[in-house]
Design a protein around this nucleic acid. Structure first.
Lengths: 212, 212
DNA sequence: CTTTGGATTGACTCGTCAGTCAACCGAGGG
DNA sequence: CCCTCGGTTGACTGACGAGTCAATCCAAAG
């Protein structure tokens, strides 16, 4: 049998524990769950968790770092595509994040609830990484300000916060069943969040009449 | 001497503990601090905390409920003022929240970090109250959709999330020193957040040309 | 002066877990 | 056949901190 035939060992077991942790953290919350809950969910002995991770926190660290880096890389790639307008780039970013939630809701819930939105306690350690995302988004906005397609009186950092905050609030709303979450809702949200933030909530007739 | 001359007793002591809790929770975080930290900060004995509150959580409950209701009341009042456009109403709401942070940064930090952004653990209990705020904002947007000043293809609930999310992200950025926070920054933010969400990030020339 | 009861004190209890560790297992090599 | 060694086990320890409670204080009433 090739690798992974029957026996799981080494890296496989570590992955097993990480995946179990995702489910347990998502279900019970990081602080409210016991390490033994993770071990039980993974079907391994308590002590084995400490064979692969030095502490409970390191499990969460690993989950966050792995996933967040994926997102940072994705944003960098999107930003490179010169054929896209700033609005289209932001749409791609929003799409990536929303798809991340759609495909791995538990993992994204953990990252948002336990890290991103917990900057006070746990997330403080990850603030630099989190800020990288803000800065990448700000970079996209800044370019649009320079070429005149975005308003120059709203700073890029400020705009990036509004954009990111809106998306995170959407995910939070889905996580806590405040907004409906069918496949259709996710698809529409991708376009709407960009329309809301870039185009604004006001109808074009109003914008146009104000401009004219 | 009028009431409160020298001796603090009853309600006064309770207030003393609440104010101490605000500082301690803001500094160390709700989970990372001990009840004895709050007692020390207030300058009272450990046991007295349990004379006025049945648990550590009840302190946080009290802080949140008190303050959040103030905000809900404020939004209701703003919504009543028919002379205001939807955009102006949203500007008033943003202004109220930003001023709340400016005047009581520690309390707002606690409410946002420990309750609003902690909907998984502690905040779950307060979700109904939190949703009231979303609904009030959505109500303002809905009216604007009906009278045609806001786009009808973005649902009011969705728009409310974007608006609230943007504001909360701003406060979060201030809390964690990601954005500068001078009096001037706060004042400008009030207008800019509304311009960003209602008017959009794109420059009017773009909107106008698309519309025309 | 004595009584009464709420305010105040802080040492103590008691449950909970994160993290440790000595023993155990089993595959592969000699 | 036995030895070795990384992977695996789970009972145990030690720290920590929320909440309890019996004792004390003190102001006002009688």
């Amino acid at each position: 049998m090739a690798a992974g035939g029957g026996k799981r060992t080494g890296v496989d077991k570590q992955r097993l524990i990480l995946d179990a942790a995702i489910r347990v953290f998502a279900r019970q919350g990081f602080h409210s769950c016991r390490v033994s809950d993770v071990a039980d969910e993974a079907g391994v002995a308590y002590g084995l968790v400490y064979h692969y991770f030095s502490s409970k926190e390191e499990i969460l660290n690993t989950l966050f770092t792995e996933r967040w880096q994926l997102m940072l890389d994705a944003i960098v790639e999107i930003d490179k595509r010169d054929e896209l307008s700033a609005r289209d780039k932001l749409a791609e970013v929003a799409g990536f994040i929303i798809d991340s939630y759609r495909h791995e809701p538990d993992l994204m819930k953990v990252i948002i609830v336990e890290v991103t939105r917990a900057a006070n306690t746990f997330g403080r350690h990850h603030l630099p990484k989190i800020r990288e995302a803000y800065n990448l988004i700000a970079g996209i906005v800044e370019q649009a300000r320079v070429d005149g397609s975005f308003k120059s009186d709203i700073s890029a950092e400020f705009a990036a916060m509004c954009f990111y905050g809106a998306i995170e609030q959407l995910l939070t709303a889905w996580i806590f069943d405040i907004l409906p979450r069918s496949d259709d809702d996710f698809e529409r949200a991708k376009g709407l969040v960009v329309e809301a933030i870039c185009g604004g909530l006001e109808s074009d007739t109003v914008s146009a009449s104000l401009a004219g």
